[in-house]
């Protein structure tokens, strides 16, 4: 089976029902996407497929259908970090950090479709990503800051 991750094509020999998450982590050693729950409750495994946020623990690799996968490792461009990553660092969002690659991927996808979100929009978009350390207030602030950066860019 072939799949494209962060612009690189890979060949893997796995069953088609294997979740993309485990193909990335255990077969390709791309470990930014994290295993937290396996049932779409936490969002730590969030990646982009053709630009849209997807919980990689819920997408069977056989159903990728040629979609291009971007993980947190592929979010930055050669010119520098993505605006969401910059905002996360400026606001010192992460504590343990385990959920944050999923949070950042979710925020980046959300800001593509909703570039000027209100607090309520952020609450609707980001509440399916669980953070057990309780970094939510800074996530809210960092999403606003990232939106501003993207507007100015």
């Amino acid at each position: 089976m072939r799949l494209t991750v962060n612009g690189t094509e890979h060949e893997v020999d796995v069953t088609s029902d294997m979740p993309l998450l485990w193909v990335l982590r255990d077969e390709l050693n791309i470990t930014g996407p994290k295993y937290g729950c396996g049932i779409a409750q936490c969002g730590a495994c969030t990646v982009h497929v053709d630009g849209f946020a997807v919980r990689s623990c819920q997408l069977a690799v056989g159903d990728l259908a040629g979609g291009h996968v971007t993980t947190i490792e592929g979010l930055a461009s050669p010119e520098g970090l993505h605006a969401v990553q910059e905002a996360w660092i400026e606001h010192q969002v992460a504590q343990c950090g385990y959920c944050q690659s999923g949070q950042i991927m979710q925020a980046a996808s959300f800001l593509e479709t909703n570039p000027e979100p209100t607090d309520e929009d952020i609450d609707a978009a980001m509440s399916a990503n669980l953070c057990r350390c309780g970094t939510y207030p800074r996530i809210r602030a960092a999403v606003h800051a990232a939106a501003k950066k993207l507007q100015e860019a």
Binding site: I89, G97, S101
Partner: peptide
């Protein structure tokens, strides 16, 4: 700033 902040935001 925390020294582990950037790697936690890049997947590193």
């Amino acid at each position: 700033t925390r020294i582990d902040m950037e790697p936690k935001c890049t997947g590193a």
